[in-house]
Computed example of a mutant assay.
Amino acid sequence: MHIGLVLSQTPGYSETFFNSKIKGLREHGMDVRLYCQGKKDDFNLCPVILSPRVSRNPFFQSWYFLKEVVLLLPHLPAVIRYIKLERKEGTGVLQLFKKTYLNAHLLKAKLDWLHFGFATMALGSETVAKAIEAKMAVSFRGFDIAVYPVKQPDCYRMLWKYLDKGHTISNDLLVLAKKHGLPEDIPIEKITPAIDVNLFKSDSQIVNAKELVFMTTGRLHWKKGFVQTVEALAILKAQGLKFTYKIIGEGPEYERIAFGAYQLGLKNEILFLGKLPHHQVKKELESASIYIQYSIQEGFCNAVLEAQAMGKLCIVSNAEGLSENVLHGKTGWVVPKYKPQLLAETINRVLGLNSEERKTITEYAQKRVKEEFNIEKQQSEFIRFYKTKTPV
């Protein structure tokens, strides 16, 4: 079976779900190819086909265009089908030339499945799978369903028309997809993210309250809720609690978060550790008392799975998949978004648990992650995803 996975670029530092998926499919004899706009030098899991180059220089762009025209000649039947489908959808002549060029790398593909890693990646390429006589799949992962359609209403109208099968990482994201027009008759499978449970495991106990360490791993972005987390921690400091808050990750919101911490008097309590490899993330987790993921928007979050696997007490928001990731009162605690005061109260309550109560929570969380969110389970589910027949 030939699988084409479409991403903006080859999987990076935090996208372990794509890397494990590719490895699993290839280990089971499937031919996997990545179709991307850019490739990292260290990526070697499968062949990578780059999208046509785009240049502001008219001369170079004309040359690139003519080159793609020549390369598309052996694939003329697929190109003709694509043109007919696009004309049927009302695509104008100039726009058709542009779309044909931008999708040239896909129109040359011989695939059984063309799978867009995020719903937004399918925009502008909705008819390609049918043109190359492949099935089309799309994944709903978070921003693409929870945020983008709010800014661009009805953006997926054409996608729903040509989609053969969908993949969601949480039930809440599926609800949102249906809210944005996903038809009820399109088959959907939920396959959650997974982690290396053999790497993220620990027998260490929670550190003493006198050495409190809170921790969050994630890109420094507004949707991760760092500002609200810092506000909650400022409340705790005002109550006399002494702690250190470690943030692992980098991103565009560093200055905003750092300045917010400074204004709230937490300059000495917060440590920005930047981006770290997984073995160092694990090392930092060892010292954490409580893991906090108070996101505004979150598809699921591997970092929370890793923290639970390490036996850490986890407090998360109710953003999308987090309430499926952590079971409130059983494997951790779920706090409604935008309520720093409530988050502070929850942290205090968790700190007040006795050792037996902590042990009950962490052991159940570890058991659940090991059984339900391991890489082997995720890989077998993706194999079934492609092998299961879809309605004609």
Rank of each mutant, 00 (worst) to 15 (best):
F200G: 09
A258T: 00
I22E: 06
G24F: 12
M158N: 07
C46D: 01
N171W: 01
G166V: 13
S204Y: 12
V138H: 02
F200I: 06
Y82W: 00
K84H: 14
D31S: 10
Q9C: 05
Q37Y: 14
G24D: 06
R368W: 13
N57W: 11
I248T: 10
C314E: 02
W222M: 06
S295Q: 03
K370P: 05
I247W: 00
K40A: 09
A319L: 05
V304A: 13
V326D: 02
G29C: 04
Q263E: 14
V335R: 03
T331S: 11
N348M: 15
T168S: 15
V207F: 13
K23F: 01
Q297I: 10
S323M: 06
I361R: 03
D42Y: 12
I191R: 12
A134N: 05
G321N: 05
F300P: 08
L342E: 13
I248H: 02
V93C: 05
G321Y: 04
A194V: 12
K377W: 07
L94K: 15
V93E: 12
G166W: 13
A319K: 00
I49D: 09
E184M: 02
F200C: 10
R53L: 12
L327D: 02
K370M: 12
P149Y: 06
G274Y: 02
E184D: 14
K88C: 08
S289F: 06
S287V: 05
S380P: 09
